[in-house]
């Protein structure tokens, strides 16, 4: 139900929810696309204008999105948004796969498409007005950088650390860009589609206190 597709715009026009109407009015041409499907409203913005957009959404009295629920990313890996084509990336770790353990690190990856690979997704809600909005920004694979929202919401701090950890999205201006779940020596970002589910990491030699002492037998 993209507003930019000619075939759908007729169907999308009457569905424009009151929230989207207000948001489009306030944000103007910062909104690249807007969707309203299954009761969820979402807007697409360019990554350059994310900080500005978020500030308007937070400070405008009619929108007043004061609660940042979630920051995450999607790895589309050559897929267009909304998935017009269906591709299978890998088979699941099924019993047949377990019979061939040598194949478990293999991945069947689809060809890279022309679309930007990542999308960063923000979920906002308002404790006063009780509406929700989703913001999406597409990021290319070779330069996955976006401005951090930590100055606006401190809640973004940990959520962006998690997104960096699992997807490798760089948040510029983040005060504490560490991994949050995994250890610092971890290679790769596990929620990317090209990271095998059964992928193994090199064993890190422990160098902390007591490293030289003999190992206790199990």
């Amino acid at each position: 139900m993209s507003a930019e597709k000619p075939g759908d715009s007729a169907a999308a026009a009457p569905e424009l929810s009151p929230l989207l109407k207000t948001a489009l009015e306030r944000l103007g041409d910062r909104v690249l696309e807007h969707h309203s499907a299954r009761g969820d409203d979402r807007i697409h913005v360019a990554r350059e204008s994310i900080l500005e957009t978020a500030r308007i959404l937070r400070d405008d009295p009619e929108l007043s999105f004061d609660l940042l629920l979630d920051v995450t990313a999607i790895d589309y890996l050559g897929q267009p948004d909304d998935f017009e084509t269906k591709l299978r990336v890998w088979d699941r770790n099924s019993a047949s796969m377990r019979r061939q353990p040598q194949r478990r690190h293999e991945l069947v990856l689809p060809p890279r498409g022309p679309h930007p690979r990542f999308a960063v997704v923000y979920h906002l809600t308002s404790t006063k007005r009780a509406h929700r909005l989703r913001i999406k920004c597409r990021l290319p694979e070779d330069d996955p950088k976006i401005a951090s929202l930590t100055p606006l919401w401190p809640a973004a701090n940990w959520l962006e650390r998690e997104t960096w950890d699992l997807y490798g999205i760089v948040f510029e201006g983040h005060p504490d860009p560490r991994r949050i779940y995994l250890y610092e020596e971890f290679v790769g970002h596990p929620l990317r589609k090209d990271y095998a589910k059964q992928g193994e990491q090199p064993i890190q030699e422990y160098v902390g206190p007591g490293a030289k002492e003999p190992r206790r037998p199990h």
Binding site: L69, I74, K86, V121, P154
Partner: peptide, 27 residues
């Protein structure tokens, strides 16, 4: 919250769990 992205197959393309504890413990 659960944020599910479907590509039309029987498996979710992405299944994100917005966990309350994670946000609650961050401050």
């Amino acid at each position: 919250g659960f944020y599910i992205v479907s590509d039309g197959t029987g498996k979710p393309w992405k299944c994100r769990c917005r966990a309350p504890s994670f946000s609650n413990i961050s401050p």
